[in-house]
């Protein structure tokens, strides 16, 4: 374990060194991350300049929700970005190499290159969080800070588990990125609003089938101290970060199962 961590760290450093050589792409890719995540927030800002609330949530409250979701997304994206390129690693046969090296193949995929896009998302997330805490009525206590941190990590694990499970389909099918794109979009779109807006059915699905609710909506409600209408009890709401751990383990099991049917068709 400790050994693997040391090796992974060495590979990560190498990936960052490699990426640092392409300065120009740095800027464009980072801007892309900012535009991608920023345009969603711009929409909310625009409509809430004319309307008082969405589903009973005011602009400052939705800003907190949006910031938590985006922060969870960034925490997921920075280490797991390379999953996006699993399609091409498999197609070009590069993945073969990961199976003849003494380190978990997933860790090798993740440390193959360092992506700068994820920095754009991180910058946007931190920016919106600062903005949101300045306009929202938040009373930070050590307990809520701790809870928020755990919730962000839990949210990242939910997104990560889903991403790992879907990406691992690349071992069987040629093109998986559109499915990843769709899943990303579902998390982004549903996750940025109070789920009650989408109706009872969608809310139930987004809570118990795909746990979008636990990424940001439930934690945001806990932090804002307005847990009515969540569809889960207060206790469950406080346990939200655990959902991520469970979900991530499930995702990894799917990955292991799919890996067994890897056929190394690339050449």
């Amino acid at each position: 374990m400790l050994d693997s961590a040391r090796v992974t760290w060495a590979l990560t450093r190498a990936a960052v060194r490699g990426a640092a050589q392409y300065r120009l792409n740095f800027v464009i890719l980072a801007l892309m991350g900012i535009a991608y995540q920023g345009s969603g927030f711009a929409f909310i800002a625009v409509v809430l300049s004319r309307y008082p609330s969405i589903g009973g949530w005011t602009f400052p409250q939705i800003a907190v929700l949006y910031a938590l979701r985006l922060l969870a997304h960034a925490v997921y994206l920075v280490p797991l970005y390379m999953l996006n390129e699993l399609d091409s690693l498999v197609r070009e046969g590069t993945f073969d190499r990961f199976l003849v090296r003494p380190l978990n193949p997933l860790l090798q995929v993740l440390t193959r290159r360092f992506s700068v896009n994820s920095l754009g998302d991180t910058v946007t997330a931190v920016g919106i969080l600062c903005y949101a805490s300045s306009i929202a009525d938040l009373r930070w206590t050590p307990m809520t800070v701790l809870y928020a941190a755990a919730a962000v990590l839990g949210g990242a694990l939910i997104e990560g588990g889903l991403a790992i499970a879907i990406s691992s389909m690349a071992f069987r099918f040629v093109e998986v990125w559109p499915a990843r794109y769709l899943a990303d979009h579902i998390l982004l779109n549903f996750g940025s609003y109070p789920l009650s807006v989408f109706g009872a059915v969608a809310q139930w699905v987004m809570t118990w089938i795909v746990p979008v609710a636990f990424v940001a909506w439930v934690p945001a409600a806990v932090i804002l101290d307005s847990t009515d209408g969540l569809g889960v009890s207060g206790t469950v709401a406080w346990l939200a970060p655990l959902v991520g751990a469970i979900w991530f383990c499930l995702g990894y099991q799917v990955w292991r199962f799919q890996l067994r049917s890897y056929e190394s068709t690339g050449n």
């Binding site: 409509v47 969405i54 589903g55 559109p178 499915a179 794109y181 769709l182 979009h185 579902i186 779109n189 549903f190 609003y193 807006v197 989408f198 109706g199 969608a202």
Partner: peptide, 19 residues
């Protein structure tokens, strides 16, 4: 699947605007 992204977008927009 890419159309699915648009369909999700349409659904979300419909619900958000209704709210």
């Amino acid at each position: 699947l890419l159309l699915g992204v648009t369909v999700v977008q349409i659904f979300v927009l419909k619900r958000v605007w209704s709210a």
